[in-house]
Design a protein around this nucleic acid. Sequence first.
DNA 1: GTAATTGCAAATAATTTGCTGGGTG
DNA 2: CACCCAGCAAATTATTTGCAATTAC
Lengths: 135, 135
Amino acid sequence: MNAEKKEIVYRKSKQKTRILEILRSTKSHPTADWIYEKLKPEMPALSLGTVYRNLNILLEQGEILRLDFGHTFDRFDGDTSRHYHFMCEKCGEVSDLELPPLNILDKKVFNLCGHKIKYHKIVFYGICKNCLQNS
Amino acid sequence: MNAEKKEIVYRKSKQKTRILEILRSTKSHPTADWIYEKLKPEMPALSLGTVYRNLNILLEQGEILRLDFGHTFDRFDGDTSRHYHFMCEKCGEVSDLELPPLNILDKKVFNLCGHKIKYHKIVFYGICKNCLQNS
DNA sequence: GTAATTGCAAATAATTTGCTGGGTG
DNA sequence: CACCCAGCAAATTATTTGCAATTAC
């Protein structure tokens, strides 16, 4: 395991360029499908697979962000009290944090932009204590 | 639209009870499949569909939490600078927030539990300014 | 007895991947 | 001319749903 990644030299393509342009020009945090529909008129031959492939390349290059939990499956929590989570990027473990709830943030955001905030979620990412020791 | 929800009176079942017990007894934030595998030995006839159905019922009853982005598809962001997000529960829009990054939190969490924190994400949920006005 | 719940299997839905041919460096 | 990239379709994966039988209240 931990095989060294083959260094891929990415090339330009009209599709990749347009996808990035579209993402840069909107504040709407689109889905892959939305980008596909947006691009289809000017590139009738475009396929959804190409959009996904390019999004992953752009992600890897750090040109864009993906807004999700990282893992593809939902996780459930039997503890419904307000608390935050940490996910270890190495072992994938999700753990609860003792950090007290920061209710002030909700008010701050309301004052800033006028949205009515019901609650918020915070997830910290990094390497857990265990993985730090075993490496 | 906006049809009034038929009020369902949930009944007890061994499956639902055990699923909740398992969730309450672990801190590992399991996936649906993990719960299914855990329960299978004592309930050989159990099906994965039942696990999913009960998790959704428990969610609706507020007995458990789901850790994810709510929507099932990824959204992408062309802005890679550190910023937080807001999602409107009514119209589904995701927008950027002007709230400055709270780097102190990463140190706080490290001091608290010893995990090495690389970064964190915050998502606020509620009703956006627009939806507030149009209702 | 009414209607929620189950197991099973088939259906969805988002995303990934194999293949073949075309285009970039 | 090597090898990355596109388009297409088929495969994967997590989750949902239809159905008939079962069970809770």
